[in-house]
Design a protein around this nucleic acid. Structure first.
Lengths: 229, 229
DNA sequence: ACCTGAACACCGTTCAAGT
DNA sequence: ACCTGAACACCGTTCAAGT
């Protein structure tokens, strides 16, 4: 009877079409504004003027949405073309990764708890693997090293984020009140333990990279002997 | 009239007294059995034969409970007395920490997302700070280094845990299917990226420690000049 | 002081039913 | 094929009321 009316119910009214991309970008917007805890299927649905059930036509479950959101955020990570100086290039990539994680609260926590396999994660891993090999790492050490570096960056970002919130005050107050006789070093270094922004990050990155290169080759043999003790 | 009956409603019937300790140990038991996602106020309450509301007389909120659970688990971390060989002692402590996190699924995830300030965390930090200073670190580097080491151990444990679940199969399948032309190194190293147990952990720990010691002193000056670029 | 039941404001996910 | 409302089985937390 009225065949022209049989179209997506999303057309005609003000609503835009419901797509995977629209869902992911709404979720990213939400996570950016309210943090990871502010994200829920129901809230994403509300932001898109629909019910939570509608999302399941495009996305398998919350876990999948979170993976997609992480990779979407990582699309902003810049990888330099020229790579003559592997150490400079490595720092650029990892700083860019850090900045992205830092920009959106909550995405850092996501990066920690997920073993990422999205295209942007792969892009970043590929670049770091290449640089570590260029630096003289064995392929196997580069694999573990890449993982180590990315984990370190994600942890740093997540921790910095936690500090932003009123948490920092609370924690430093707790550290201020600990028993200085029982924990003399912790007490003496209570400020250093919480200090540091980009300086601390670069310090850690360089320590890790130096360590990876230093370990390369020599240690695997040692380890096998340790194992059999 | 019947003054002898006016006692805790917890007495008389089979129920044991509701205490902070009982709540924490029930929560730890739950987390050990079902993982972090299996833990909830309501489930802890049920395990103690009561309603969720009753817990709030002893514990401020879920966050506090999680902190208490983490520290309770960390009471199992052993710290050797004799410390002539700082490197051996350090590995013993960190391996003990790792083993504890590994033993109870979910506690590792907890250790990552929390900046721990419980007595057992402090105990562990104090010991590592001491060993790093003994190794020749400056106090400030020891502070950052301790944090770095503990984070690394927690990340490792959390990731290993994630692998135990059916997640590993899924991830390695995904890596098996990626575009080898686009990501040649990731593809070539797909097994190495997921491999490794205690070997990989010791490799990383030694890399980090070597890095920390190598960075000590020289780098802070560099960093200040970098900052002003 | 400690414990309780009921209520409030949320969750993720499923499913039959609509277009 | 896509979208929907209602339902199911959960959450953390509060609060008046009981002992």
């Amino acid at each position: 009877m009225k065949p022209t009316q049989i179209v997506s119910r999303r057309r005609g009214d003000g609503k835009s079409l419901l797509t995977r991309e629209a869902i992911v970008s709404a979720a990213l917007e939400l996570i950016r504004r309210d943090g990871l805890d502010g994200l829920s299927m129901r809230r994403v649905a509300t932001a898109l003027d629909t019910g939570a059930a509608s999302l399941y036509a495009h996305i398998h479950d919350l876990d999948e949405l979170l993976s997609l959101v992480l990779d979407s955020a990582l699309s902003g990570v810049r990888i330099p073309r020229a790579r003559e100086q592997w150490d400079k290039a490595l720092e650029q990539i990892v700083l860019s990764y850090l900045r992205i994680l830092f920009r959106h609260a909550g995405v850092a926590r996501l990066a920690i708890s997920t073993i990422a396999t999205g295209p942007n994660s792969l892009r970043i891993m590929e670049a770091i693997l290449q640089l570590l090999e260029q630096a003289g790492c064995s392929a196997e050490d580069a694999a573990w090293g890449t993982d180590l570096i990315l984990h370190f960056a994600a942890s740093t970002a997540a921790e910095q984020r936690a500090r932003r919130a009123n948490l920092l005050k609370e924690i430093s107050k707790t550290l201020e009140e600990i028993d200085a006789a029982l924990y003399p070093r912790v007490y003496a270094l209570r400020r250093d333990l919480l200090s540091g922004g980009i300086d601390r990050f670069l310090w850690g990155l360089r320590a890790i990279v130096k360590g990876i290169l230093g370990e390369s080759g020599t240690v695997r043999k040692e380890l096998t002997s340790v194992k059999h003790r």
